[in-house]
Design a protein around this nucleic acid. Structure first.
Lengths: 239, 239
DNA sequence: ACCTGAACACCGTTCAAGT
DNA sequence: ACCTGAACACCGTTCAAGT
């Protein structure tokens, strides 16, 4: 209990000795993982890098997360939390609320592409994911869909948002050379393909949007919302 | 030149000696990689496993592919080829052709989930991808869209199909335990969440479609096609 | 020309040992 | 209780050496 003999002589043998001030915790590890992911060139998030960031031994993380998958699901839930924070409270127009939730999810994924790239197909099964699912289903119910249709439309709409967002994030997470080569395919390769073999590509090549054009997700999102509105009108006679 | 002294005494020191009959080639390596991917539990496609499958040294692959990324893009193009083979010739109803191309792409991805899971965001920039892009753009032009709208709609529709297919493939490619845990979240965790905190989830939990329900992609696809038809009617007065 | 062997710099994970 | 050190079984990739 007496915190006295913390003599700070610089004779420390071990080059990294944060002192007892800095115990690890799930929160600190998650924060460090995000910091690592921001400057992670291609290779990404490793226990080694997180350990360095925390000035702790890589394997110390196993005290707080059972496996790396466990940690990655915690990071995914943090992405859901970030998206929820950026979204106004529920209760207004259901289409506008779905639009805002979708945009906030896409934005959070793009802010942390190294985390997001593996997240699209995963279920975090944690607090903030629960909250977001509840919000989306709430929108579907307010739209007038039956419980069955609301559940189906939740699944399809949310998986669409996650899939498209994870794909955009995957592109952003590629190492610079690989991304540049893929992008250049659309500004060079596809624009110089022989007209005889690929007449349709040739006809519109000058207008092909870039792979990372933010309007791509916006356009896809509006298409999904339009279709939902159309079937909501058909389904429910009672406004 | 004299292929005589191929004495087949079983004294061979080297345990793997296919003899000169079996030179490696891009085609043989791609075929072996697909075979490996089919029985790849979680860990996936490695040069070691492909080498074993070919009874050759893992590093021999570097004679035929510059990097692993180069090999993976060749595998992606093979997926595009498989999707094209399963699709009727172009020229009929543009909506039906888009539907068939999308279904064939999704099916090819699901047949090879370990290859597909990393493919959604990548550009193969190879023969069969060119051919598929030309088909989709052809549909958009036949629908009556301007070159600009055809190019945008190609990008959005195709990226939607690739993203959703890669996401479904990623789920299928998870190792058994991880996939089961994620799936169980929707049949157990989400169905037993407290009603007070998550009223909307509680209201529809019994009807939530499974993560891997094939109807999910079908529903999303029809929503996109509906929206395309609607904007094609608005855009082009000339049937 | 094509393949092999050995080496390099990494991974996630386990487990006995330290404090 | 929490962290460290060493070890294990892997990765992709490079490069000199074999045939």
């Amino acid at each position: 209990m007496t915190a006295s003999h913390a003599g700070r002589q610089p004779t420390a043998k071990s080059p990294r000795r944060p002192g007892p001030k800095a115990w690890l915790s799930q929160e600190r590890i998650v924060a460090a993982a995000f910091r690592v992911s921001e400057q992670a060139g291609a290779q990404g998030i490793t226990f080694q890098a997180i350990g360095d960031e925390l000035e702790a031994h890589p394997t110390a993380i196993y005290r707080h997360f059972r496996t790396k998958d466990d940690l990655m699901l915690a990071l995914l839930d943090a992405l859901h939390a970030e998206a929820l924070e950026a979204t106004p409270q529920p209760g207004g127009d259901w289409v506008q609320e779905l639009r805002e939730l979708a945009r906030a999810t896409h934005a959070a994924f793009m802010r942390h592409p190294h985390v997001a790239q593996f997240s699209g197909a995963r279920t975090a099964r944690r607090q903030h994911e629960f909250a977001k699912v509840d919000r989306v289903i709430g929108c579907m119910l307010r739209a007038g869909f039956s419980p069955e249709d609301a559940a189906r439309n939740y699944r399809v709409f949310s998986d669409f948002v996650l899939a498209y967002s994870a794909q955009d994030a995957s592109l952003a997470a590629l190492d610079t050379d690989t991304k540049n080569t893929d992008m250049r395919a659309w500004t060079v390769d596809y624009r110089t393909l022989p007209r005889e073999e690929y007449p349709n590509i040739h006809a519109v090549a000058h207008a092909l949007p870039a792979l990372d054009d933010p309007q791509n997700f916006e356009t896809a999102l509006e298409m999904m919302l339009e279709s939902l509105q159309s079937s909501a009108r058909t389904t429910s006679g009672t406004g």
